[in-house]
Design a protein around this nucleic acid. Structure first.
Length: 381
DNA sequence: AAGACGGGGCC
DNA sequence: GGCCCAGTCTT
């Protein structure tokens, strides 16, 4: 019982928002409308109508789900942070970052007040760094406004918050009846309804979102959404659907026809591009501070990974004296497969745009993972 | 509608 | 090496 029953005010607000929902009226809508119209029903004396699928899903979810830190809070800020981190990122990858980030920036005001470099540094390694820049911007907006947005439309208006995240925050933090549509829900819905449409196409996504919305129990929107995602993450797996463990197997059309392995349909995909990269580790010993320094440059502007520090590539320092090859490694970024060669090098002085960074500073800087790999030996103790 | 945007884990 | 992941924003 971690989630308190939605208040009557919540239900009123939900109804008011129905107009922005593209779905058609369903039995669940009618049931909710009846509850709001009638006397307040405390303690679930008059249980609203819940579809068989919604009931099965909630029963399964509540009988045991993963104990995740963002499921232990009702703080909209904490839930918001978790949802941004979880965009295109696995739960296991998020866990170590989430706790640390919230300890460092425990409130939206703390995040708003923090310098950009600190925020980037706390996100460093998680990827998709525009997420954290938008999160930071949004935190400043919220702090400025003095209140956290409380409707789907207000939440959606925050930078970095799209339809998925707005529905997730609205339902999980505020109990509003908005179905989420993420990769998990897409897969579960495509199988459940044996829908062979390309899940990258808008028409298919709208169809599947409507299906998810149709079975959403308006009193338990947050748990329903999390149950659907939990099902996709632990049972309705991409390659190996565990239909024998699935609470929806009786209702699943793909399962009935033995098509679960052929769904969902995904069409487009960018071809990989091979890239040869030579990174230079240029060091010097600074007598003044009696420390080893390394030559780095910082990305600026609206380009990718703005604010991050990088090693120079060989073509950036045509005058450098190249030394030994320190190591080689592979690193893939999106559809670019880098083969990286790390070489020692020397320069007379730092060229324009470059700075000498003391080795002790490295752990506190925003560094891409490719740079971390190249600097492994200098980053260690 | 198509591209860009990180990184890691799995086969 | 390809696929997938609690997506969003910009052309």
């Amino acid at each position: 019982m971690e989630a308190p029953a939605p208040t009557n005010a919540n239900r009123q607000r939900s109804l008011a928002e129905k107009s922005i929902q593209p779905d058609v009226a369903t039995a669940a809508d009618v049931a909710t409308a009846a509850n709001v119209a009638g006397p307040a029903c405390g303690g679930g004396l008059f249980a609203p109508h819940v579809s068989p699928i919604g009931r099965a899903l909630l029963g399964w979810y509540r009988s045991g789900n993963r104990d995740l830190p963002w499921r232990r809070t009702r703080d909209p800020y904490a839930i918001w942070v978790s949802e941004i981190m979880l965009q295109q990122t696995r739960v296991e990858a998020v866990l170590p970052y989430y706790q640390r980030f919230l300890e460092r920036f425990p409130t939206v005001e703390a995040l708003a007040a923090a310098p950009e470099q600190d925020v980037l540094s706390a996100w460093s390694g998680l990827g998709y760094y525009s997420r954290v820049r938008n999160l930071h911007r949004a935190a400043r907006q919220v702090a400025e406004a003095g209140r956290f947005p409380r409707t789907y439309d207000e939440i959606l208006a925050l930078p970095g918050v799209g339809e998925y995240t707005a529905a997730a925050i609205a339902s999980i933090a505020f109990g509003l009846p908005h179905a989420v549509l993420d990769g998990n829900v897409l897969r579960v819905m495509a199988r459940l309804h044996a829908d062979f449409g390309d899940i990258g196409a808008q028409a298919t996504r709208k169809r599947l979102r409507d299906q998810a919305q149709r079975d959403l129990p308006h009193q338990d929107a947050g748990d329903y959404n999390q149950a659907l995602m939990e099902l996709g993450a632990t049972v309705c797996l991409p390659r190996d659907p565990r239909c024998l463990l699935c609470p929806l197997s009786e209702s699943c059309r793909a399962r009935a026809e033995g098509l679960q392995h052929q769904l969902p349909t995904k069409l487009r995909r960018a071809p990989m591009v091979a890239v040869e990269t030579t990174l230079l580790v240029v060091t010097r010993h600074c007598a003044e501070i009696s420390a080893k320094e390394v030559l780095l440059w910082q990305r600026h502007g609206s380009h990718r990974m703005s604010g991050f520090w990088d090693l120079p590539e060989a073509h950036m320092l045509p005058g450098a004296a190249l030394g030994a090859t320190l190591r080689t490694f592979r690193h893939s970024i999106m559809n670019h497969a880098h083969r990286c060669q790390v070489m020692a090098a020397q320069v007379e002085e730092a060229p324009p745009g470059f700075r000498w960074i003391p080795r002790s500073q490295l752990p506190h800087l925003p560094l891409s993972t490719m740079t971390r790999k190249a600097l492994r030996d200098l980053l260690g103790a």
